[in-house]
Nucleic acid binder design. Structure first.
Lengths: 205, 205
DNA sequence: CGAGTTGCCTACAAGATGTAGGAAACCTAG
DNA sequence: CTAGGTTTCCTACATCTTGTAGGCAACTCG
């Protein structure tokens, strides 16, 4: 069935690796082609444009993140679940900063337009997977349905904000280390979620 | 003293406006030149490179943000100070999303290397101004010196995270609106800071 | 072994950053 | 009013980028 060689998935995976190595902005057709040992036009057999490539990477990486977080969250609940979720997210970001950047730097709307490329639809689906994982954490705390959205926003904002500033280097060059204040973040988040659950809902387990 | 025309400040201010209009990534030499009605090489009399231009914009915008926040914080303390600080930051980001992006997308180390361009030194100084404003909020709460760094990180992470996700559209298409959950964020942040102040320090006012 | 499919290539158009060198406009001195 | 110096802006160019067009070569399947 034709000549073997690169396929679409190889190209996207290589692009994700390139993002970690040189930064998400460095993911360009020409740089990626050089890394793969082919000429630039070759890649256009597998992707449709640079914009599309980046959206592909975002979708691919969002799925990787959801996989990692899902694995870490297995068989946990309450505070353990929160810590597993948050640690898995932060570990992913620190191990793969370029991949993590891809999850935030690429605009992913909640709903795709009619003429949206398949890569965007996939990114949206992958984004939903991650959102559902965050929801699972707040559900485990027993946050009432009316407060769920806020609880997810609070948790996501704090975790993403901390990771984002840590990766940007904002916490370097000042004691204590970013590593050692992270447990405090989790503790405060635990308190806030528990409070939210007690205000309007009934605590679970 | 020579022919009048654009100066460095004009160019940087126009670049900041362009970032708000088209996004920080769209701030390029050629696009900026077209907007200013000159040819691309002209701009190289005022800036030294695209990278430098972007660092210039970051420094310029960080100063604008510090100015806005400082004005909003005048004659306030405690919870009022927190709300003024957080609202001013979020208002700035919503009114000028491209400018806000510039403050985060451009890597600004805490200390400049020996061969750092002047634009980077200025960005570092401007970054320090903003950090000092955050510190003023936690001081007003009476957070003990040992917990100051954590308090600033908690506050900055949550505020930046919320703004960042809101601007990315992560809070759209789901009720309640990003606008209406913001006060809850401020309330939870107030609780967390007050708790921090009571644990090891003495409350102020 | 033949045919179809597929991947990669060269060649090219359009536009980006950045450099070199020169022309035009302005301010200040005389 | 004129001459000199300064500064801005320009054209021309080298190099690299994205993206398109068309063709060649390699592999699979019948």
């Amino acid at each position: 069935m034709g000549r073997p060689g690169l396929n679409r998935r190889d190209v996207i995976a290589a692009a994700a690796d390139l993002a970690d190595e040189l930064g998400f902005d460095a993911v360009t057709v020409s740089v990626l082609a050089r890394h793969l040992g082919v000429r630039s036009p070759t890649l256009y057999s597998h992707i449709s444009s640079l914009t599309d490539l980046r959206t592909d990477v975002t979708a691919y990486v969002l799925h990787e993140l959801a996989d990692a977080t899902t694995a870490a969250m297995a068989d946990r609940s309450g505070r353990d679940l929160l810590v597993a979720y948050a640690d898995a997210t932060r570990d992913f970001a620190r191990r793969s900063p370029g991949r993590y950047d891809a999850t935030t730097r690429q605009r992913v709307p909640a709903v795709a337009g009619a003429d949206a490329p398949p890569s965007l639809a996939d990114a949206i689906a992958a984004g939903r997977r991650n959102a559902d994982l965050a929801l699972a954490v707040t559900r485990s705390y027993g946050v009432a349905e009316a407060d769920e959205t806020y609880a997810v926003r609070l948790m996501s904002s704090l975790i993403h904000g901390y990771i984002s500033l840590e990766l940007a280097g904002s916490f370097a060059h000042r004691d204590p280390s970013a590593e050692s204040t992270w447990p405090n973040v989790l503790a405060d988040l635990d308190v806030a979620l528990a409070r939210l659950a007690n205000v309007t809902g009934q605590p679970k387990t």
